[in-house]
């Protein structure tokens, strides 16, 4: 039985909202990262679903791009987190405000 396309979009929207809210409210950098991944993959899901719906490969290609960017971003992000941890600073995103004016 084929699943209707809007259900995928609905799921994607729910996942994205969870990610966004988590990003805004959680303070542990690792959790914040996971929220970002959640948002990105919600978008991926939407891309793939619509790609299938339209019988086009464009969305899949975008999904691959997003996966690649996400991987690179995680590498940089984790590296920063490890450095902050080594420097003995608290693991709290609201306290990491060196970039402030």
């Amino acid at each position: 039985m084929p699943v209707p396309a809007y259900t995928f979009l609905l799921l994607s929207g729910v996942l994205f909202t969870m990610g966004a809210v988590g990003f805004l409210v959680r303070r542990n950098p690792l959790v914040v990262f996971m929220c970002i991944e959640l948002m990105l993959n919600a978008v991926n899901l939407a891309f793939v679903a619509i790609s299938r719906y339209l019988n086009s490969l464009d969305g899949v290609i975008f999904a691959f791009l997003v996966i690649t960017v996400a991987a690179a971003e995680v590498v940089v992000g984790i590296a920063i987190i490890v450095q902050v941890y080594r420097a003995g600073r608290p693991m709290d995103v609201d306290d990491l405000d060196l970039m402030k004016e």
Partner: peptide, 12 residues
């Protein structure tokens, strides 16, 4: 410059 608070959640 005041916009740049350094708080990640405000940027988000």
């Amino acid at each position: 410059r005041l916009i740049q608070t350094g708080r990640v959640s405000s940027y988000a």
